[in-house]
Design a protein around this nucleic acid. Structure first.
Lengths: 344, 344
DNA sequence: TTGTATGCGTTATCAC
DNA sequence: GTGATAACGCATACAA
């Protein structure tokens, strides 16, 4: 290889010059444009490789007015459900030629806003969001809607009507399943540890659970219901309250698995026999639920399947971009299932 | 708001026109350039907001020849160590004004190559990589080195010398700790289930473990050593082999926690008392190890601290870009600790 | 099938 | 302190 002057980097113009043809032809050849002779296409590609050419997607994006980047805002990457959702989503989008820019709001409304703005400026072609725990005002996503940038909410979705796509789990049914299952298992003194009602999924799980009990003529004691961040520490505090008196619950619906796990550990410490004296159901079917002793009954959410639906929606919306009408349709509701284990 | 012709989107040129000033001034005002009057700065920002202007980072990136995007290739986002590493890394980089483009190789060498090329074309400003299980040839990262794009390997790093930054856990010491601890606990019949030796971390853990035993005059039986993908299924198969005869191990070093967990479950099924008849150590201090019964002794890797070092290295390298010499220095080795629980 | 010319939106350089 | 201008690299409309 001859020593070349260390100019910035080879562009299609350099290739064109080296080949004595026009940059336009090079561009077409590299993009496998139809109106180009097989011979030049080959010559160009060969020279491109030889010169160490790499496509500049910044220039390309600017010219095409699309970045081929899709933004994702997720509360926490470390949550089982989201980790598997992301894995699946990324595979799909990669296959469709998109890169994913993954950001974590860390369940902070403030950070979620910043990320939304940042991704907005980064000119993502679309945005996928699962909301932070206390996000109620969603005006920080308005820009996307106004600009006609596809916006998809999944799992934790807004509780108000928006112009965005919505793909959610059937949390109402999840709550219903949990309630029915505990009833059938003979529980009558129910406790419920849930996330805050600012968050769609906990609203729905609560509604489903309450409805299930109501059908059997059971009501929840108000002081046995908790709405809080579902950390292990909060769970322990609530459990201590639940079990401090003489009158104690015989069934617990935990709206996530971290809480259910804490409950099993709490019961172990207090020597409360499970499932004999206390039955427990979690939510998400986190792998940890099957590892602990006793393994915990939980509600499966099928994260991969949800990711597939999000990807389909997204790719569809991106293809339709610009074409006449973009009809949104109803929120897509994904099925859930009860996975029965030894705590019920 | 008056109805405006629906042209594509407002640029600084539009703002300039609306204000009767030049685009250059607008740009300077928006970037808080020093040589601009406070008055114009305010006027410009106000108008920008009013016109719904958003910065176009594609144009900006093209002009500046930097994308402000940092690429990350990770084997699996769902592994505890990586999930926490990513969380920390992202926080740091966000603060430094960079966006992170996270990709999963899914432990496939082929996919890793594709992702490297894709991120290369995407013109990331830097690349952070933890290698796939069987990656030995790392020539797909050569482009980054040649272009002087900062390249940082962490955790699973190349086993050969490269021009890249290397930040790794002290896996040799991890293996050593595990070996010493099992010896002190009285084990003499050691089994070892490890990942493939193509992968730096398993090479080192193996070396440390073997050295620890050797110091006590103990050698590993060859048929009690496994090098394989560390899935639960593979673990079960190996465990069946280990415990099929009369002569069985009394100590097991599992090079990841998934394997250690499988071992505990296997022992439970076979009614092998832990730690009396069999002692087990895992690696990574995955939260699952503290949930299972009995909780598993494991090696903590401090993912957040490693992420901090990667971020520092990265930001430093990016700032030095272009300036005379870029000295790499030795690989950075991060500390590990043994977390003692009930399996030893 | 190929070439010419232009513009995507921003910012750096130079001039005033 | 501000303006005019050019250039980043690519892809298209139009011409040939």
């Amino acid at each position: 290889m001859t020593s070349r002057k260390p100019k910035s980097e080879n562009s299609i113009v350099d290739i064109a010059r080296a080949l004595g043809i026009s940059p336009a032809t090079v561009s077409r050849a590299l993009n496998d444009n139809s109106r180009i002779s097989e011979a030049t296409r080959m010559r160009v590609k060969e020279m491109a490789k030889e010169m160490g050419y790499r496509h500049n997607s910044m220039a390309s994006s600017l010219r095409n007015r699309r970045s081929n980047i899709i933004g994702l805002i997720v509360p926490r990457i470390s949550m089982y459900f989201h980790a598997y959702f992301i894995t699946s989503l990324q595979r799909q989008l990669q296959a469709a030629g998109y890169n994913l820019m993954i950001c974590q709001s860390n369940d902070s409304v403030k950070l979620e806003k910043e990320l939304a703005n940042s991704l907005y400026s980064a000119r993502v072609d679309a945005l996928v969001v699962s909301l932070a725990l206390y996000t109620e005002d969603i005006s920080h996503f308005d820009g996307f809607l106004q600009q006609g940038i596809p916006l998809v909410f999944y799992d934790r979705v807004p509780t108000v009507e928006t112009g965005a796509y919505v793909i959610k789990g059937d949390d109402y049914r999840g709550g219903l399943l949990a309630g029915n299952h505990l009833m059938q298992a003979g529980c009558r003194q129910m406790a419920y540890i849930s996330g805050p009602l600012s968050c769609s999924i906990y609203q729905e799980r609560t509604r489903g659970f309450v409805d299930a009990l109501a059908k059997h003529g059971i009501a929840l004691r108000e002081d046995w219901v908790f709405h809080q961040e579902l950390t292990a520490e909060n769970a322990w505090n609530s459990l201590r309250k639940l079990f401090k008196g003489k009158h104690i619950p015989d069934g617990l619906f935990a709206a996530n698995d971290t809480t259910a796990i804490a409950a099993v550990e709490f019961a172990r410490e207090r020597q409360i026999p499970i499932p004999d004296k206390l039955k427990i159901i979690g939510y998400s079917n986190d792998p940890r639920t099957s590892i602990i002793t006793p393994p915990i009954t939980s509600v499966e959410q099928y994260p991969s399947e949800m990711a597939d639906k999000v990807a389909d929606t997204l790719v569809g919306a991106l293809q339709r971009q610009g074409s006449a009408v973009t009809r949104l349709g109803e929120p897509l509701v994904c099925p859930v299932d009860l996975v029965r284990r030894m705590t019920t």
